[in-house]
């Protein structure tokens, strides 16, 4: 039975998106300057805030190097002051021509840079009589019912995830497990559609992680067991799938489905948009992950265990050469001669 905690920690260091990432910060500054300089006159005043997973301390490095930068614009206005697409058009106008590829998407305006990264700019109505915050949804070409202000408060979400769990070391295990699972997703879901979102996985960990640690009774030293934390979490996720029935070609077909709530108002189900078939794949991949985690744990040699884990988590998961998992002796033993019969 091994835990490979050292290797999990190295893996975490390798995939973690550090907040002080200068490259990303400078890229953000470029687009913010453009927004401030080119925002059309009719636009309301706005504040900028950092959002996305790196604001929540759960960001990971992208596998393809295509960094995703999230910028939130906090407009000082109510939902009645402007339509959602109208507000997004201000942003689109400010950014149009900044690169060859600026697109209005349903939840944001996306600017793609040739250098291989993109910035998603989201628009919020932040001053409402009910104190709620709304995200602008829809595109210029969308139907009327697809243009709406959607209740969503990213600042509350960031705070909720960032401050989750009071013990700071427990919180670190929480963040590590989120990052492991997100990298697992990037490695195992190759097609663009059908993968669970990062925030959906983050919410699963938020709701269902059972912190796994040992406390030494003599010296109080705490040792975290990330492999056990993953095993119990994935087991819990698999157990939460429920069977739903659909009529297909006159026959009743059953599918497994799982729901998970966003941890803040209005607590939407973050797996809502996944199709039944995508759910089947998701569940199979989770079962495959659980098998691998349990198989790794049953190994006696950490190197063998890490080889199994690497298949699930990708090449950033280290496989130590066998001798490196052993203690160092001070001097070579002096052998006796021996007699056997």
């Amino acid at each position: 039975m091994v835990l490979c905690q050292t290797q999990f920690i190295s893996f975490h260091e390798a995939i973690k998106l550090k907040e002080e990432n200068e490259e990303l910060a400078s890229k953000r500054e470029i687009i913010l300057k453009r927004l401030r300089d080119c925002m059309p006159e009719e636009a309301k005043s706005f504040d900028v805030f950092t959002q996305g997973s790196y604001a929540m301390n759960t960001g990971i490095k992208p596998l393809d190097g295509d960094f995703d930068i999230d910028v939130g614009l906090w407009f000082d206005m109510s939902r009645e002051d402007a339509g959602p697409v109208e507000a997004k058009e201000w942003v689109f106008k400010a950014l149009e021509g900044h690169t060859k590829d600026v697109k209005m998407k349903t939840p944001c305006v996306t600017v793609t840079y040739a250098a291989g990264y993109h910035v998603d700019v989201t628009v919020y109505s932040a001053t409402n009589e009910n104190c709620k915050v709304y995200l602008a949804k829809g595109k210029t070409t969308s139907k009327r019912e697809e243009k709406y202000w959607d209740e969503s408060n990213p600042k509350d979400l960031i705070k909720e995830i960032r401050d989750h769990l009071t013990d700071k070391d427990d919180r670190r295990q929480f963040r590590r497990v989120v990052r492991y699972l997100k990298r697992w997703k990037d490695v195992n879901f190759k097609s663009a559609t059908g993968k669970p979102s990062g925030i959906a996985l983050t919410s699963c960990v938020y709701h269902w992680l059972d912190i796994q640690k040992d406390i030494d009774l003599f010296n109080g030293k705490v040792t975290y067991r990330d492999l056990d934390a993953l095993i119990s979490l994935i087991r819990s996720m698999i157990s939460r799938f429920q069977t739903v029935y659909e009529v297909e070609g006159g026959e009743l077909v059953s599918y497994p489905r799982i729901n998970v709530e966003l941890p803040v108002s209005p607590w939407p189900n973050l797996f809502e948009l996944m199709t039944n078939k995508q759910m089947v794949t998701f569940k199979e991949k989770l079962e495959c992950l659980l098998d691998a985690l349990e198989e790794a744990k049953a190994k006696s040699d950490p190197t063998d265990a890490c080889e199994i884990l690497r298949k699930q988590f990708g090449d950033d998961f280290p496989v130590p050469p066998r001798p490196m998992t052993g203690k160092r002796s001070v001097a070579p033993a002096v052998l006796p001669s021996t007699e056997s019969a």
């Binding site: 039975m1 091994v2 835990l3 490979c4 905690q5 050292t6 006696s300 040699d301 950490p302 066998r322 001798p323 998992t325 052993g326 203690k327 052998l335 021996t338 056997s340 019969a341």
Partner: peptide, 20 residues
């Protein structure tokens, strides 16, 4: 009869023995 010595690791993570 034949014989020899056993050489192996004492694991950092749990002090368990492995003969390599």
């Amino acid at each position: 009869e034949a014989g020899g010595i056993l050489i192996g690791r004492i694991l950092i993570e749990n002090n368990h023995f492995i003969i390599d």
